[in-house]
Simulated scan of single mutants.
Amino acid sequence: MPYRFWLLPGLLLFTTACSSTGPLFSSSSSSSRNTASTASRRPAVRPTATAKATKTAAPLRTVDSRTYGSRYVSEVINQARTYTGTPYRSGGNGYDGIDCSGLVCAAFSSVGLKMPRISWQQSEVGYEIEVSDIRPGDLVFFVPESGKEGYVSHVAIVTEVRATNDIRFIHASSSRGVREDNLYSNYFKGRFVKALRPF
């Protein structure tokens, strides 16, 4: 099936650290399965609710892969971990409630790195990597239903790579709030779509 794209204005994705936008764009997915050993499928189009930021971000700077090193990675992870235990709130951006893409946005913007606000937008930042190349600071993306193709609905930040089958990430769980989980847990490995190095 050919890919179909809906183009947004050039600077729309990166005008602010935690901005919301309207129409979605993406491509139809490949026929690959959602397993933790596969990182090839793109999200399909699906409207989502937008949310406004409620926090003031740090001054933003553009960072490339040469400067997104261990210092920024540790700062991003440490900032994300300050939200541990925060309850889930759709569209939330603060310690009183936060959602998955809000956590990513807040963690990156706290150290001055630009990141879009919505998970599908975040899934288009940086470049895709293989699961075997995942390292702390990378982003991992998920679909809602195990074994099914679909739109990106969830995002997390990799915090530790303990072993080939133990990759830890922090995320805002809709049922348990901000916590860390293993990519290879039964729940997440079937919903995994891809991993990205954001900068």
Rank of each mutant, 00 (worst) to 15 (best):
V63C: 01
D64Q: 09
R66L: 12
R66H: 12
T67I: 14
T67H: 13
T67G: 07
Y68I: 05
Y68F: 15
Y68P: 02
G69W: 10
S70D: 13
R71Y: 11
R71D: 11
V73T: 12
E75H: 10
V76C: 05
V76G: 04
V76Y: 07
I77W: 08
N78E: 11
N78A: 15
A80P: 02
A80T: 02
R81K: 13
T82D: 05
Y83N: 06
G85F: 03
G85H: 01
P87E: 01
Y88D: 02
R89G: 06
R89Y: 12
S90D: 13
S90G: 13
S90Q: 14
G91N: 08
G92E: 07
G92M: 04
N93I: 07
N93W: 08
G94D: 15
G94P: 06
G94N: 15
Y95K: 14
D96P: 01
C100A: 11
S101Q: 06
L103Q: 00
L103S: 02
C105Y: 02
A106K: 02
A106L: 01
A106V: 06
A107Y: 06
A107K: 01
A107I: 01
A107D: 04
F108I: 00
S109N: 09
V111S: 10
G112A: 04
G112D: 03
L113M: 13
L113R: 03
L113N: 02
K114E: 09
M115Q: 02
P116R: 00
P116W: 03
R117S: 07
R117F: 09
I118A: 12
S119H: 08
Q121W: 05
Q121H: 12
Q122Y: 09
S123M: 06
S123P: 09
E124G: 11
E124D: 11
V125Q: 12
G126P: 07
G126Y: 10
Y127A: 12
E128T: 15
S132W: 11
S132Q: 13
D133Q: 15
I134H: 02
I134C: 01
I134Q: 03
I134M: 14
R135Y: 10
R135D: 10
R135I: 13
G137V: 04
L139Q: 06
L139I: 05
F141T: 00
F142K: 00
F142C: 01
F142G: 00
P144Y: 13
S146Y: 08
E149T: 15
E149M: 14
G150M: 07
G150T: 06
Y151M: 13
Y151C: 11
Y151I: 05
S153I: 07
V155Q: 03
A156Q: 00
I157R: 00
V158C: 04
V158Q: 02
V158E: 01
T159P: 02
